[in-house]
Write a protein that binds this DNA or RNA. Structure first.
Lengths: 243, 243
DNA sequence: CGGCAAATTGACACATCTCAAAGCCTGTGG
DNA sequence: CCACAGGCTTTGAGATGTGTCAATTTGCCG
């Protein structure tokens, strides 16, 4: 049985490689500080120098970069189970901020404890590095979307990704998932305007790809959507392999 | 004195943290297979499963993703000293390809040897992970450019970044550097058309930000360019710190 | 019922794309 | 040494995608 605290993280690691019971025990022995936060809260500020990283156990968060003119770009979305800012352990200074996209629950873990854990358990350390490397792959896919896909293909791609990632951690049933995102937030993800996000969403609705009501996204046909988005799940690395 | 083989890599690691002589010796003891390749060559194919990663010691390479319609997006540029595809060690399947943007020289190192090295030298391992994490930060900055900057600001930002990265490894003097990139390649970096890349470049020329002749970029005034691009070097992590 | 944020619509401006042609280099073969 | 081919750069004109601004509608919550 998975523990209530680090359960989702461990679950997510186990998608890619097996986690021994000693490794699981070591994770569960990590001291943490739990924190609830509300939609819209800033969790980590850009340019800050955190001494802890956090694991998201409930809700949605996003990495954001603010521009001088007040617009912003979301560069990543975190779901339950994600280690939200492990990179900060090495980078020292945050090059982006982290905000809550919904009410959420976080476990803060000290970098020093993490470092100790990773020194003691090299294979587990590799699994944690792996999650960061996958974040990078997800970022590259996002980048390709911004560079070479139309807004509607990009949105379709995003929804394909979120759906699969939610499924990995048990947050999607059938082809439905909870995604309580306002259109102006969607716009910040897609690098477009809120007005255009609205029109883009209407295109997908008109093609009968999905419904999106009260924050519940229901995909009509994942395969058709993936085809439209030119979606290739390789980058998500959902393969069980010794790493 | 830096060795001729792994010298640039070590140099680049030393920008962020000190490298002990034992660590340097361990790197230099790594078995490698040298390879020269010509501009345009594909170095690593998308969807392949390499068992080696490579260090670029001369020239320029890029990560690329191809779209169905034949267009492509470049998602990263590697300069001499960069570990071009360390992530492949953990990811197993390439989610992108790597091509030579100029004639270049590469050292291929077996993943098994790397794994052994990293097991033996944990601090050095952290430095290598660090380089991947910085790649991620560079990717995020690129993403923000695609999402929220105009083409001309994006190009300005790219040139600021390349200039600083080149300077780190001794490839830029004054505000000049060799960047033998065709406009259609530039377009693939910026996520625009070759025609528009040309017009974008003309904008920067008209503002007297640079000259770009025979593959030599000469910045007129880095600070003015950085101001125009809204460039903030935080993400490059050019800070010497124990990691 | 009123108020507020989010979603939607319309009209027009601007950035970028497309296609096509022309100009410019550079290397090569005659 | 010239002529030519091929790739790269530059220009033009019109189409399309996305942005801007402003107004209206919808839905939620007090």
């Amino acid at each position: 049985m998975l523990s209530l605290t680090y359960g989702t993280l461990i679950h997510l690691l186990q998608v890619r490689d097996s986690v021994t019971s000693a490794e699981r025990a070591a994770i569960e022995a990590l001291p943490f500080r739990a924190q609830e936060c509300a939609k819209g809260d800033q969790i980590i500020a850009q340019h800050s120098r955190p001494t802890e990283s956090c694991i998201l156990t409930r809700g949605l968060t996003a990495r954001t970069n603010e521009m001088r003119d007040g617009s912003r770009q979301i560069t990543a979305i975190n779901l339950a189970g994600d280690f939200v800012d492990l990179p900060a352990m090495l980078l020292k200074v945050m090059d982006h901020g982290v905000v809550a996209l919904s009410d959420c629950r976080l476990l803060f873990v000290a970098h020093s404890d993490l470092r100790e854990l990773m020194a003691k358990m090299p294979h587990l350390a590799r699994l944690l590095w792996l999650t960061m490397i996958i974040d990078g792959a997800i970022g590259r896919a996002w980048l390709v979307c911004l560079g070479r896909r139309s807004a509607s293909q990009h949105l379709a791609h995003l929804l394909c990704e979120i759906y699969l990632r939610m499924k990995m951690v048990g947050l999607a049933q059938d082809e439905n998932f909870h995604f309580p995102i306002a259109q102006h937030e969607l716009a910040d993800m897609l690098g477009i305007t809120a007005v255009h996000a609205n029109r883009t969403l209407q295109i997908l609705r008109a093609k009968d790809f999905l419904t999106w009501i009260n924050g519940i996204v229901a995909l009509t046909d994942f395969d058709r959507l993936a085809e439209y988005a030119e979606f290739d799940a390789t980058y998500l690395n959902m393969i069980m392999q010794p790493r």
